[in-house]
Design a protein around this nucleic acid. Structure first.
Length: 746
DNA sequence: AGCACGCCGACT
DNA sequence: GTCGGCGTGCTC
């Protein structure tokens, strides 16, 4: 008899089942759980002696489930993520294995005997219709022997079905049915584009380095327009010819239209594109194709890192500095971390032979402005740095100009207005960026000073003029704006902090003949929307594209010669140690939109902080210099990449409860840690303090901030896990979230 | 203190 | 769905 540790679908616990059959780790099976058949995943095989519970309670596994198993390397990855991010099997497996692949359960009716027609008629409906129905029922059942209850109910009255059950004409059995019917659409023969990609010397050198190096992790640092994509495609293509697959990760599928079109052109039906909009059926098909090795290239956002690609060779994380690579709910993993772990896990498992080198997975992190944490690893030699310094087709870098907003009361400085007019006159295009949607950030009453705030969150409501609503960006709360102050009834509500909607209005007033398009998450709700706007702008159906940071990235328009940053300070003021790094990235990325074609580009940055080092280093295009300055501060304060951070958020609907319990939990953790690591400024636990966003969705939030030397972090995480777990068991009203290596500090 | 009752979470 | 643990509130 074998004993197995089993994860049961949609259940938080791990249970022991037994079987005479041998099951593999990662295989799915059917088990009886609370009188229901459920899918179970084999996590481990255990020895009888190690079982904690009463062995007589242990049930038998019913049978193997007829679904594809999770490959061994992904099972190891699941276990690692659960451990590293202080998560649980339930959340991690949900993230890794698409729900669409699961089994369904339906009740089946099994033929037992015929209805005795006369018997049925006594005291019942004896019309012609019902006699016919009885006959039909009998014939039906006799022929099919078994049929789902759902089908029966569709074809017969509920009365007759009920009667059939009562008189044991049919018996009911719960049957497991496979939800993963794959349509037998034949995969077409591979038709890889044979179009030759011409690489310049620098690109060719980069390709050769990545191919031939003994290293497994690479940082491809290349300024915008230096042609990283060609390098990716070249590597994927070459490895594909030898039967290897690749995973290509992008920050957000809907915003990377160009990249995806490009890869589809190159690889046609070898490509599976994974994204959240796929239907269940599509997800099943794609997963199965990938698992069976019929599709070898996967493109997708974050979760595509879990694609069961066969003979995986390259994992490419494009725009590796992007925040969207960090999942903001449990499991709070960072895809970069997971990608590297996946590569190492698999590489370590390889059989040592002469082909081992060619089978090793390589991870390529690509960016024009690498996150400082990645760049630090490259400096340390943990990651091999591959640099591209020439702009593709020798396009020049744009010219910068900084405008001090202290000198003007307007949203547009004279200089920026002048530059926009000139651009329009030359029949060229401009991109204007403001990292704030809505019409205004907040409203403030001139008479009493009241600021309308979300009732669920401690956040001022944003004002949207187009539908005259006040909206909360955190919980989605919306309310009609009636032009008066709720507190004092005054009509003088001042708009503070202009958003894209307002800028659009001003712009239309200033340049009445210009064709303007606004792009932010409010105006672009679907991928189709985005693609249309993108193509229309490219075809010069618009003169000015105005938008939030979503237009700062990756767009390639050769006729854009002016980029204007309306206000560079918005991110800079966030309570986040990465705020200035993020600002540097945004400004650099944005300026890369200018001058991608033959014409020279120009960038105008409007800011209240012209003297800030970030702005200075941006206009000097001095990544290295800014990195060095920032590292001095990080080192001094022991922030990543030096120290490690964990944030614990304790929330409750009752304000006092959240506060008190957060303090209690903190004390408990401090007590435990105190015996293991001496607390200093570098090994630090904050008080339980109000989160920067104190209230979200009706829950009051307190957080505890942990900052520790790297070598202590394992011990610390263990203690946090233990204490928080114990605490959560007794404190049901509290919600505790643990964020390891947080990106969002609010 | 002892017991009935009802709520809620666990169920291998 | 059903069992048991726990908190509450009533009674001795």
């Amino acid at each position: 008899m074998y004993y197995y540790e089993i994860y049961i679908e949609n259940n938080r616990g791990i249970y022991t089942y037994k079987s005479k059959e041998k099951y593999e780790i990662g295989q799915w099976c059917i088990v009886n759980f609370i009188n229901r058949y459920k899918m179970g995943l084999i996590l481990a095989i255990t020895e009888e002696s190690k079982i904690q519970i009463d062995i007589s309670k242990i049930k038998k596994i019913k049978e193997a489930a007829p679904v594809l198993s999770i490959p061994d390397n992904l099972m190891q990855l699941i276990k690692w993520i659960r451990n590293y991010y202080i998560s649980d099997y339930y959340s991690v497996i949900k993230a890794v294995y698409p729900g669409a692949l699961k089994l369904n359960y339906s009740k089946k009716a099994i033929y037992q005997k015929d209805f005795l027609e006369n018997e049925y008629l006594i005291g019942e409906d004896n019309s012609e219709n019902s006699l016919d129905e009885i006959k039909k029922f009998n014939d039906y059942m006799k022929k099919r022997k078994e049929v789902t209850i759902a089908t029966l109910k569709k074809n017969f009255s509920s009365k007759i079905v009920e009667k059939a059950i009562n008189e044991k004409v049919i018996s009911i059995e719960k049957k497991v049915i496979l939800n993963s019917k794959i349509s037998k659409g034949e995969k077409k023969k591979s038709e890889i584009a044979e179009k030759e990609i011409i690489l310049n010397d620098e690109q060719q050198k980069a390709v050769d380095t990545i191919k031939n190096s003994e290293n497994q992790i690479f940082l491809l640092k290349g300024i915008t327009g230096s042609g990283k994509t060609e390098i990716y495609i070249n590597l994927i293509k070459e490895s594909l010819k030898q039967g290897f697959g690749s995973i290509f990760l992008v920050p957000e599928i809907s915003l990377t239209v160009q990249m995806i079109q490009r890869l589809e052109e190159e690889f046609h039906n070898e490509v599976a594109i994974l994204h959240s909009k796929l239907t269940d059926k599509e997800k099943r098909e794609e997963w199965t194709f990938i698992r069976n090795g019929e599709k070898k290239i996967v493109i997708g956002a974050r979760s595509a890192i879990f694609a069961p690609v066969q003979n995986l060779k390259y994992i490419i994380v494009d725009e590796e500095h992007e925040n969207t690579y960090k999942q903001e709910n449990n499991p709070r993993y960072h895809v970069k971390n997971v990608a590297i772990k996946r590569a190492f896990l698999q590489n370590d498992n390889l059989e040592e032979d002469e082909t081992v080198k060619s089978k090793k997975i390589k991870v390529i992190l690509g960016s024009a402005t690498p996150s400082f944490e990645t760049y630090y690893q490259a400096q340390q030699g943990d990651i091999e740095l591959v640099e591209l310094t020439k702009r593709y087709k020798n396009a020049k870098l744009p010219k910068f100009e900084v405008i001090d907003l202290n000198e003007t009361a307007e949203n547009f400085s004279e200089k920026l207005l002048d530059k926009i007019s000139q651009t329009l006159k030359k029949n060229e295009q401009a991109i204007l960026i403001l990292n704030r949607k809505a019409f205004s950030n907040l409203l403030k009453c001139k008479d009493c000073g009241n600021i309308p705030t979300c009732p669920n969150c401690s956040i001022s409501l944003n004002y949207y003029k187009y539908d005259n609503q006040l909206k909360c960006h955190y919980c989605g709360y919306e309310t009609q704006f009636n032009s008066t102050c709720d507190e004092c009834g005054s009509h003088k509500m001042r708009q503070i902090g202009a958003g894209t909607e307002k800028i659009e209005e001003e712009l239309a007033g200033l340049f009445p003949s210009a064709r303007i398009v606004r792009v932010d998450s409010e105006s672009i709700k679907t991928k189709q929307n985005y693609e249309k706007v993108y193509n229309d702008f490219k075809n010069h159906k618009y003169d000015i594209m105005l938008g939030t940071q979503i237009i700062a990235k990756g767009l390639d328009f050769s006729n854009v010669t002016l980029v204007g940053i309306i206000n560079a300070d918005i991110i800079l003021n966030f309570p986040d140690f990465r705020a200035s790094e993020k600002t540097f990235q945004l400004l650099t990325q944005a300026s890369g939109r200018a001058g991608r074609g033959e014409k020279d580009g120009e960038v105008i940055i409007q800011t209240f902080n012209g003297e800030n080092d970030v702005i200075k280093k941006t206009i000097e295009s001095d990544y290295e210099g800014y990195y060095k300055n920032e590292m001095i501060i990080r080192k001094m304060l022991n922030y990543p990449p030096f120290g490690r951070i964990v944030i614990l958020v304790i929330s409750a609907t009752e304000e006092n409860l959240a506060k008190e319990k957060a303090q209690t939990l903190r004390k408990e953790i401090v007590k435990n840690i105190d015996t293991v690591v001496k607390l200093t400024t570098n090994n630090f636990i904050s008080d339980a303090f109000k989160s920067p966003i104190y209230k979200i969705n009706g829950r009051y939030r307190y957080q505890i901030f942990f900052k520790f030397e790297r070598e202590n972090i394992l011990k610390i995480k263990k203690i946090i896990k233990k204490c928080a777990g114990k605490f959560q068991k007794t404190e049901k009203k509290l919600r505790i979230t643990i964020d390891v290596d947080p990106i969002n500090m609010m």
